[in-house]
């Protein structure tokens, strides 16, 4: 046992006054729950409540994460922006799979969103570029807004006893040829339930 391990073990875990996640009363739409949690994080005054770990896959198949800011949620997809020629831009070009992990430590909440990333059109990208504090009036053709279209969510509410509550949402498979079936990312239907595997 190293000295570091000893010190790490003694660090305080989660407190007792955490919110409770009731698996029986979560909304059908994971975006509603995400928005609730994000709004509560913003209202709490926590620093950078919109920051998250954005993970892509590199050319060798290794996951690569970095902290990014969520720019917007629109039509059921979660937006980030970057230079198209950045490493993450190049990785997304090769493999559009990605995840976002939001962790609000004060409330013991984590959300993981997994899905497929698409590049939005130039109009959306340039509008985002023009809204940046550093904008000088010149468009930047290299600027790109990406949107993660989720196929799964996992919400975790930590508990003092470490029996953390986890709810996962999975989008319903829709190869259904029924023309009336919802097709846009915003209108899809989700199933949810407790995560069956041990939390660790």
């Amino acid at each position: 046992m190293t000295e570091l391990r000893d010190r790490l073990r003694k660090l305080p875990a989660f407190p007792s006054d955490l919110p409770v996640l009731d698996p029986d009363s979560v909304p059908e739409d994971p975006e509603a729950l995400f928005r609730d949690w994000l709004e509560e994080a913003i209202a709490s005054g926590a620093r950078q409540p919109h920051a998250m770990t954005f993970t892509t896959v590199d050319e060798a198949g290794f996951p690569v994460g970095r902290t990014l800011i969520l720019k917007d949620i629109e039509d059921g997809a979660y937006q980030v922006s970057t230079h198209r020629t950045s490493r993450k831009g190049a990785q997304l070009e090769q493999d559009a799979k990605a995840s976002m992990i939001f962790f609000w430590r004060e409330s013991g909440r984590q959300v993981r969103i997994t899905g497929t990333v698409i590049a939005l059109d130039d109009e959306a990208s340039q509008a985002d570029w023009a809204s940046r504090p550093s904008f000088t009036g010149e468009p930047n053709p290299d600027w790109q807004v990406y949107a993660l279209v989720p196929s799964a969510f996992e919400f975790m509410q930590a508990r003092e006893d470490r029996q953390h509550t986890r709810i996962e949402y999975t989008v319903q498979a829709q190869a259904d040829p029924d023309a009336a079936a919802p097709s846009s990312a915003a209108a899809r239907t989700w199933t949810h339930g407790p995560v069956p595997t041990p939390a660790g």
């Binding site: 059109d121 829709q174 040829p177 023309a179 079936a181 097709s183 899809r188």
Partner: peptide, 29 residues
């Protein structure tokens, strides 16, 4: 997505692929 789902429904696969999750997003504007 409606076009693709109906083709998939009739043929089982499209362009050699049979995605189980077909959705759409307005990323071309």
């Amino acid at each position: 997505a409606q076009l693709v789902r109906r083709i998939l429904g009739a043929r089982g696969s499209v362009a050699g692929r049979s995605p189980s999750l077909v959705t759409e997003y307005p990323y071309l504007g």
